[in-house]
């Protein structure tokens, strides 16, 4: 049934439960949850057309914040304007909010347990390997594009942050300004 014919309460409940379930049971961040969102809202519920969903995902990626959260806000906005955006935002945010709040209390209680410390020591090493893998993949993409300014930006930002401990936000602001200036002078086709 098209969403415009559903009673408001049913619509909001469906929006909330869909985003809540997606958020609660999806490990692996935006790259996993966004395709699943597409499946739910385009294929299953048929509330959004394929093309429009792709546009919404693109907008979600060009704004700051987690892609999963942004896309879900946009889906809610498309379905029921600001109220819809708030409902789907709540559905997406509540599962991690509840889980991590509980973990925070448990963590304080067992933080000094030696077995727990060994476990997290080992897992921390694994996380470092996973992050380095992501960094190598991302940096390779930048280098492979063979554009001078992005490569210089990447090297410059690394030196500024890692060696000179320049504030992260300043590095981001300067890079954003350079990006805008570059595109104004030489727009992408």
């Amino acid at each position: 049934m098209p969403y415009s014919e559903l009673p408001k309460r049913t619509l909001f409940w469906k929006l909330f439960s869909s985003t809540f379930i997606l958020s609660a049971f999806t490990l692996g961040g935006g790259y996993v949850i966004v395709p699943l969102m597409q499946k739910t809202f385009v294929e299953k519920l048929q509330w959004i057309k394929e093309e429009e969903m792709l546009d919404l995902i693109a907008i979600g990626q060009s704004a700051p914040g987690p892609i999963a959260v942004n896309t879900s806000i946009l889906v809610g906005y498309k379905i029921a304007h600001i109220a819809g955006a708030i409902v789907s935002l709540m559905g997406t945010v509540l599962p991690p909010l509840i889980i991590l709040t509980v973990i925070s209390y448990v963590y304080s209680a067992i933080q000094n347990n030696p077995i727990f410390q060994m476990l997290f020591f080992g897992m921390g090493v694994g996380v470092a390997a996973v992050i380095l893998d992501a960094v190598v993949t991302l940096a390779t993409t930048v280098i492979k594009n063979r554009k001078v300014i992005p490569i210089l930006l990447m090297v410059g930002a690394f030196i500024a942050a890692a060696l000179f401990k320049v504030d992260v936000i300043i590095v981001l602001l300067v890079s954003a300004i350079i990006g805008v200036l570059t595109l104004i002078k030489r727009p992408l086709k």
């Binding site: 060009s62 704004a63 020591f121 921390g124 090493v125 996380v127 470092a128 992050i131 380095l132 992501a134 960094v135 991302l138 940096a139 930048v142 992005p150 490569i151 930006l153 990447m154 090297v155 410059g156 930002a157 690394f158 942050a161 890692a162 992260v168 590095v171 981001l172 300067v174 890079s175 954003a176 300004i177 350079i178 990006g179 805008v180 200036l181 570059t182 595109l183 104004i184 992408l188």
Partner: peptide, 29 residues
């Protein structure tokens, strides 16, 4: 404008993740 901002941010963001990753790696070892 958003495209321009992202054009500059993408490489810088890689560098910042690398820098944070390095701190985490040193800590982990």
């Amino acid at each position: 404008v958003m495209q321009g901002i992202l054009y500059g941010l993408r490489p810088a963001v890689v560098a910042l993740i690398a820098s944070a990753g390095l701190t985490m790696l040193i800590h982990a070892l």
